[in-house]
């Protein structure tokens, strides 16, 4: 545990020592802020219209603002993940510092968990920016906080799963760019996999669309914790970290 924290804090340090963290936070803040602005403006306009027309109850903030914004964050997150994970192992392999880690009295698993945990914390730090946006809603309205927090929890789960895959891809190469592009391609594929379900309903289409990451996020954005989705993300985390461990081991045999 102590070793995991040592690795993790070192990684956090290098994220925040370089412009990566700030760049990503700024980019993510800008894009999600834009979506938040559009969703709120749309909501305000429509609820004003609705109240002028009379009739119906007040519109639901969770339904019209929180949920679409969370869905947007989930998708934009796919673009952020590769930038967080690309350097995790590729950089250490390129500069040779991986030799220090591997010849120190710590296990591969501790190295992997430490790095993955730091990536997850970095992801959470980036998520904090749009979450602040959502908090603003509390000042002007009465959104229900529970579905909102379920949504954030789901984002973290989804991030953890993709970060685990990203760690694996970063571990297979010495080149950050290759790792980044590879991870991006995988994230994108995992997003669009379920589009097949719109015109196909055979068994294979179901299997493929089941693997789609964003589809599993949808219930979370509505505030529903479905064990099926939680297990999906957890098994993906496990799978990604397992592949990373295998890849580390193969590095020893091949190098």
């Amino acid at each position: 545990m102590r070793n995991i924290l040592t690795i993790c804090s070192k990684e956090m340090n290098s994220y925040f020592r370089s412009p990566i963290a700030y760049g990503l936070m700024a980019f993510f803040g800008l894009v999600t802020g834009w979506f938040f602005y559009i969703a709120t403006a749309y909501f305000v306009q429509n609820s004003m219209k609705a109240s002028m027309m009379g009739g119906g109850g007040p519109m639901n903030v969770n339904e019209y603002v929180v949920r679409p914004v969370l869905m947007n964050i989930s998708v934009i997150g796919l673009f952020i993940i590769p930038m967080i994970t690309m350097r995790l192992f590729a950089e250490e392999k390129r500069s040779g510092t991986i030799e220090l880690l591997v010849t120190s009295p710590i296990t591969d698993l501790e190295i992997i968990l430490g790095k993955w945990l730091s990536a997850l914390m970095m992801y959470c730090a980036i998520l904090a920016v749009p979450v602040l946006n959502l908090m603003v809603l509390f000042a002007f309205g009465k959104p229900d906080w529970k579905p909102m927090f379920v949504g954030i929890f789901g984002l973290i789960l989804q991030g953890g799963a993709l970060l685990a895959l990203g760690s694996f891809i970063s571990n297979t190469t010495k080149n950050q760019i290759v790792a980044g592009v590879g991870t991006f391609a995988v994230c994108l594929m995992l997003w669009v996999l379920d589009w097949v379900s719109s015109f196909e309903s055979s068994a294979w289409a179901k299997v493929i669309s089941y693997m789609s990451v964003v589809a599993h996020y949808e219930p979370f954005s509505k505030g529903i914790i479905d064990t099926k989705d939680v297990i999906f993300y957890l098994s993906m985390i496990f799978f990604g970290l397992f592949l990373t461990a295998r890849s580390m081991e193969s590095l020893r045999w091949r190098s």
Binding site: T6, K10, S14, G96
Partner: peptide, 25 residues
Amino acid sequence: YLPETPPLYPEMEVGEYLQFVGKLK
């Protein structure tokens, strides 16, 4: 172990780096 290229993290300070390695060991 000192590999052929010293395993250094350029973004760290020297003291901080030695602390990190010490903890690893």
